[in-house]
């Protein structure tokens, strides 16, 4: 009982209701995020419709191995996050498992960022930064890379926030400052993490796959 009261916040009287509200709230926020990334993808779609060849040529220059490995890493992090969140919703003794899975999730997130860092380094060396000295001759190929840097950057910011939230849960949970079992915060963090994953699932074919067939 005292556990439940520890998790309860103003203005709620029952934890269950508070949990529902938190979950509902984060889903509304995720709907908002859908529009956020949707608008970016729309920008990409319009530019690609107007310049299909330049986008194919530009897409060929990306490193598909970095992209694919990173996608696999994020998908795996979603698995560990899903297990953490579903286990925490159960009654059993699951603290160790939840902590381990959360730790793995954060580690995979960091791994993604490291791979991304290597990829960025390579991109810069290949002169794929728009502006003077850009590697490709078509001017519209710069649109692709303008969007590439922006979209991956915004995704990376989201992922960094996600990693911070997960690490916070791990630290607080390990120090027994909060109870992870049944924690609304864990549920909310997990949903956010999965959305960041979903965004990447869409970015993968748009960034790494154009122009491979020709």
């Amino acid at each position: 009982m005292s556990d439940a009261t520890a998790l309860l916040r103003e203005p709620w009287q029952r934890l269950e209701r508070q949990r529902q509200a938190g979950k509902f709230g984060i889903w509304i926020f995720l709907a908002s995020e859908t529009l956020f990334f949707g608008a970016l993808l729309l920008t990409y779609a319009v530019c690609r419709i107007e310049h299909p060849d330049a986008f194919a040529a530009a897409g060929r220059e990306t490193n598909i191995w970095f992209g694919t490995i990173n996608t696999a890493i994020l998908l795996t992090s979603s698995l560990t996050m899903a297990v953490a969140s579903q286990a925490a919703a159960q009654k059993g003794r699951v603290r160790q498992l939840v902590l381990a899975c959360l730790g793995a999730t954060a580690a995979l997130g960091v791994a993604f960022m490291i791979v991304k860092g290597f990829e960025y380094k390579e991109d810069i060396e290949k002169h794929l930064v728009p502006g003077t000295g850009f590697a490709l001759s078509q001017p519209s190929a710069q649109l692709f890379y303008g969007l590439y840097w922006l979209v991956t950057g915004v995704h990376a910011i989201h992922l960094t926030i996600g990693i911070a939230l997960v690490v916070r849960l791990v630290l607080l949970g390990a120090a027994r400052r909060i109870r992870l079992r049944g924690s609304p915060e864990l549920e909310v963090t997990a949903l956010y993490w999965h959305l960041v994953d979903v965004v990447w699932i869409f970015l993968y074919p748009l960034i790494y796959l154009p122009g491979r067939a020709s």
Binding site: S78, A82, L191, H194, L195, V198, F202, Y204, P205
Partner: peptide, 18 residues
């Protein structure tokens, strides 16, 4: 590519995000 992305994200939404 886009269709597979739709399927993948549906899987995440339906199962991982419950």
């Amino acid at each position: 590519g886009v269709a597979i992305a739709v399927i993948k994200s549906s899987l995440v939404l339906v199962f991982f995000m419950e």
